[in-house]
Design a protein around this nucleic acid. Structure first.
Lengths: 147, 147
DNA sequence: TGAATTGTAGACTAAACTAGTCAACTTGGT
DNA sequence: ACCAAGTTGACTAGTTTAGTCTACAATTCA
């Protein structure tokens, strides 16, 4: 029941971008440095987010990437969907035809419940929520450090 | 965000066993036939359930498998935990030490929320619930067939 | 114009994991 | 003794993952 690293790292990359939103173009190189990904790998992570219309990229000198919408308007459901392809724990949840037993299968009903529970968490959280939580954590840590 | 087939098939196998509880020893061969698994594969599915104390097995002629506890006392959390090893969508959820950023990582907090949401669904469902849902579905289907 | 900078695309690969199969074995009943 | 069951673990083909590498395209700016 694991996310791929694409999902985990991709969300971190997008969050990094959201945190630095408003500072003009953000360089993939800088995201890679801060998050400790290799640049080539980050390029793969960001590709589906660009294709999905969440991120706008500009090539060339003074280029970089930007969030298309404000972080408050981006739910994690969208992000995870683009990065992972699907939120379902089993293929039969999205397409009953993959298994001939789908119609009468009660374990499938459980997987549907699981998916709904996950979707509810992801739907009710935006990138902006994460940005705020992160700023709060940073503040708390700084205060702790001073004590 | 997928379960392995071990998780999906294993739960189906255990549910099959629960449905046939009370008919004496259940043969792996019969579960395999009804669920359309190969017998050798089913043996691998059932092994962690035996090791986890959910299933009791007896070898030899007149042998077979049995549920140790009544289905109403077996939650799906237990089952999925034995089959999948963990419910966490990322390793850092169970062991923060796998990533140096765990303490300050807000994406980790999201994965924890996801895990909790899933656990709640699984904790509140027992094998008995599934048995009843299945009997109800079978009844409905039979009635549909007659109309 | 052309060199430097930045993102894009896709081929490629090593390693790990999955979903199995198979064969040899142990145990219990008759 | 023999047969019927479950047990164990080696083995394997195929897929997925987590990347790297190379060549390229677009943009800026001297």
């Amino acid at each position: 029941m694991k996310l791929s690293t694409r999902g985990r790292y991709g969300l971190r990359a997008l969050l990094d971008l959201a945190v630095h939103q408003g500072e003009g173009m953000v360089l993939l190189k800088d995201i890679a440095r801060r998050q400790e990904f290799s640049l080539p790998y980050l390029e793969h992570l960001i590709t589906p987010l660009i294709a999905g219309g969440l991120v706008k990229s500009t090539r060339g000198a003074r280029g970089g990437v930007l969030l298309v919408r404000p972080p408050a308007e981006v739910t994690l459901t969208e992000v995870v969907l683009l990065l992972e392809g699907s939120i379902a724990p089993a293929d039969c949840v999205n397409d009953p035809r993959v298994c001939s037993r789908s119609a009468s299968c009660v374990t499938r009903d459980v997987w549907i419940q699981i998916k709904d529970a996950m979707t509810q968490v992801l739907d009710s959280t935006t990138l902006q929520d994460l940005v705020e939580r992160q700023r709060q954590k940073e503040q708390t840590e700084t205060r702790m450090y001073h004590i």
